[in-house]
Design a protein around this nucleic acid. Structure first.
Lengths: 261, 261
DNA sequence: AGAGAGAATTCCGCTCAGCGGAAGGTCGGA
DNA sequence: TCCGACCTTCCGCTGAGCGGAATTCTCTCT
């Protein structure tokens, strides 16, 4: 039974209606904008927002707009996604690294990009781009394509609207990318070849949490002359299964939703 | 003025009392534990927590304990602390790290403390205290002193009122600290020696946003036998200039403000 | 296995916190 | 100067939220 999204009749519900009205496409909003997007009366939003500001859950900028405040961010660093994904995945990532000496990375969906949660790399390895904390495009990286493929129609529509070009290999045609995505969902892994940076190719597989929802992606990045990279696919899949199993154990499972409205 | 931790008489206040009861030492808590730590009646906590769970603000683990959920984490990634500062500063921080292999950190003002936004550290480096998300005292850390020195009279008055002691080196005399602060503003950097934890010394410089306002601090923490740390000052200043330039470009203006009320 | 403490959950009547319409204030553009 | 869009303050009504009490669940002793 789906709750009506418009509003919840409880205070907590209204608070989260306000907070949820923020997304990567609406990081800063005026009072009236929040009221419009939530469907809540202006007066109500006004009161709630002021209260939230008092708790540093929202901050008011130099202009009049509001944005998510430091309190929320700090609380977020306590969540499993942040702490445990890193902790659980790291040992397995090391194993993968030993095998091929290619850079290994874990990424999650972050708005319309993918956020590199952690990475292992030697000094020789390439991909200065994918440091922990980097936010990479979804359509030009292995991990990105995986997250995109399993990310739902709404996300895909938003991303496919404008596909930036990074190299001459970057896929900027929506139709081409769409067919790739369906291949990815069916075969369970993604490959990119010099689509983000020349000389870099990558393979990636999904990581699943409790209930089977895709919550992250695991991938390796290698130099483009390495033909052995496709041999990494089974390795990654085994590793992903092991990590996913562990993630399910500790109960990491909420599906992350995109609110595009 | 510190809010009484006991309770707030508004629903939103109670919601945040519950959320705030989570910190790095209490990442997972039982219902009863939350009730105890917040001072709220068990029944009330029970109701709130269930509602929060419905909104994925809290998640219940395999055991009965609750922890911060993916919703909060996701919202946190929308805050400017995460998006703008982290993204811009990280690559530069890595450069600094390569140079000295000391822990490098970026912090912003958060109420009467300083919030560690990000940190780079090797396996050997010290300072378990300064994880991303930690809230450190302003008067006993390098980054803290910088933020305090440039934070305005109102902030300084509030902080200087009570100076907690952490080691025998901690400055607890307001007058001494005040003169240090004016030195910091004039020379443009701050140094601490074992004032927060024995064996840890640090240097820090301000990061400026659009318009020249100090919005964050960049610092390194090192073991106290490292006499070379003062040599890091010019490195930090150059780096800070580069980061500040970039921050100004993207128009990062409003820092986290102080709400003392 | 049984007792017993602590934790989680359900129940329910009272009441005040939260609600939102209305009205007034502020800024900017025509 | 008027108009429209946004923000803020005021205030009386009412049902959402409150929390004490009782019940059930879940461990840990002995």
């Amino acid at each position: 039974m789906v709750e009506p999204l418009t509003a919840s009749h409880t205070v907590t519900g209204r608070v989260f209606a306000v907070l949820d009205s923020f997304d990567s496409l609406h990081r800063r909003q005026s009072l009236a904008a929040i009221s419009r997007r939530t469907g809540l009366p202006l007066t109500t939003v006004h009161r709630l927002v002021h209260e939230l500001e008092k708790h540093a859950a929202l901050v008011r900028g130099a202009d009049r707009d509001y944005e998510i405040g430091s309190k929320i961010w700090r609380l977020g660093t306590l969540s499993s996604v942040h702490v445990e994904l890193r902790e659980v995945a790291l040992p397995y990532m090391e194993d993968v690294y030993e095998l091929g000496n290619d850079a290994v990375q874990v990424a999650v969906l972050d708005g319309l990009r993918c956020l590199v949660v952690d990475r292992i790399a030697g000094s020789r390895t390439i991909s200065v781009l994918s440091k922990p904390g980097s936010r990479l495009p979804l359509h030009a990286t292995g991990v990105g394509k995986v997250l995109l493929a399993f990310g739902g129609a709404e996300l895909q529509d938003a991303v496919l609207g404008s596909l930036d070009r990074y190299t001459d290999q970057t896929i900027t045609d929506a139709a081409t990318l769409r067919s790739q995505l369906s291949t990815i969902t069916s075969q369970g892994f993604a490959i990119t070849g010099e689509e983000l940076a020349p000389g870099a190719i990558s393979v990636a597989v999904p990581l699943r949490g409790k209930g089977g929802a895709v919550i992250a992606a695991l991938g390796v990045v290698s130099s483009s002359d390495n033909t052995a990279i496709s041999r990494m696919v089974p390795v990654l899949q085994i590793t992903a299964a092991a990590i996913s199993k562990k993630l399910a154990q500790i109960g990491l499972g909420e599906a992350s939703r995109l609110r595009a409205e």
